[in-house]
């Protein structure tokens, strides 16, 4: 009796194990395949494009083409780097100070203020961009880096405040209090004690915000035309009247994605906190 029951249980376990592996393999395939396919396509000649074989003669021509005229993807690469870099450089210091204040001090209207800053990340970008489009048009700022940096700050700042507050909340306050007693002013405490202690968190937040800005599409689509076009908008340019140049899209896609893969794997452990703000550990 016991023996047969054990055998049945063992068999069931084996079936479940097989099922589990099958599901995981499917998940792996679904996650990786689009990336792998894009990567493969980037090295294909146009004639191989719709061949579903893995056997083709790889070429670097596509990468040469996208960097040459008329595509000049290098310019978009530069624009993306400048816009994302400047956005992060402006946003992170401001957000760190605010997050510190929210984390450490009691103040009037703190709840309402924090709530407002956080709630803004739920605002659809499309409602924000309308007035900015009109404003920038009047100021002659359309199609400039500055315009993109300004609107991207709208997305990035609430995230950064939230994320950094999570990191700061996790830093024990004793060292700061020790420094206050030891004779430091509050600003000195922030510079000497808090920043070095929360530095990894600041870095993670900066990387996260960089990725958000780098991948941003809507603002760039509406506010740029030629000079300030970023990579996500840049790739749409490969859809021409003569048809979609998939091999060039794939090459540019690799160009956009590789740096983000690297950055996101650097901060992998903390990536989840970005959007959930420590609501989920």
């Amino acid at each position: 009796m016991n023996g047969t029951r054990a055998t049945a249980a063992r068999r069931r376990k084996l079936v479940m194990k097989g099922l589990e592996s099958a599901i995981l393999l499917l998940a792996l395939f679904l996650i990786l395949f689009p990336i792998v396919w894009m990567a493969l396509t980037a090295f294909k000649r146009p004639v191989d494009l719709f061949e579903l074989t893995l056997l083709f003669t790889p070429t670097l021509d596509n990468f040469r083409t996208i960097f040459a005229a008329p595509w000049n993807i290098g310019a978009a690469l530069w624009n993306s780097t400048v816009v994302a870099g400047l956005t992060v450089l402006i946003s992170i210091p401001c957000s760190t100070l605010a997050a510190y204040a929210f984390s450490r001090f009691e103040m009037r209207f703190k709840g309402a203020l924090f709530f407002t800053i956080l709630a803004t990340q739920f605002i659809p970008a499309v409602v924000v961009v309308l007035p900015f489009y009109l404003l920038f048009r009047d100021l002659g700022l359309l199609d400039t880096h500055l315009a993109l940096v300004i609107v991207n700050l709208a997305i990035v700042t609430p995230f950064a405040v939230w994320m950094l507050k999570g990191f700061l909340d996790a830093v024990p306050t004793e060292s700061e209090e020790a420094a206050l007693v030891d004779g430091a002013t509050r600003l000195r405490v922030i510079l000497d004690i808090v920043v070095p202690m929360v530095w990894p968190g600041v870095l993670v937040t900066a990387v996260f915000c960089f990725i958000l800005t780098w991948n941003e599409f809507l603002f760039a689509l509406i506010l740029t035309r030629d000079n300030a076009v970023t990579l996500p908008v840049g790739i749409t340019r490969f859809r021409t009247e003569r048809g979609d140049l998939w091999e060039l899209i794939a090459a540019a896609g690799i160009l956009i994605s590789i740096p983000m893969f690297l950055l996101s794997s650097v901060i992998q452990r903390h990536f989840v906190r970005g959007m959930t703000g420590g609501a989920v550990k």
């Binding site: 020790a178 206050l180 070095p196 202690m197």
Partner: peptide, 20 residues
């Protein structure tokens, strides 16, 4: 007076050392 002007020293429960 802020802590720094009180001429006191404090030992904290978890020591409050500066880890860096």
């Amino acid at each position: 007076l802020p802590p720094r002007d009180r001429d006191i020293a404090m030992v904290f429960q978890s020591y409050g050392l500066y880890p860096h």
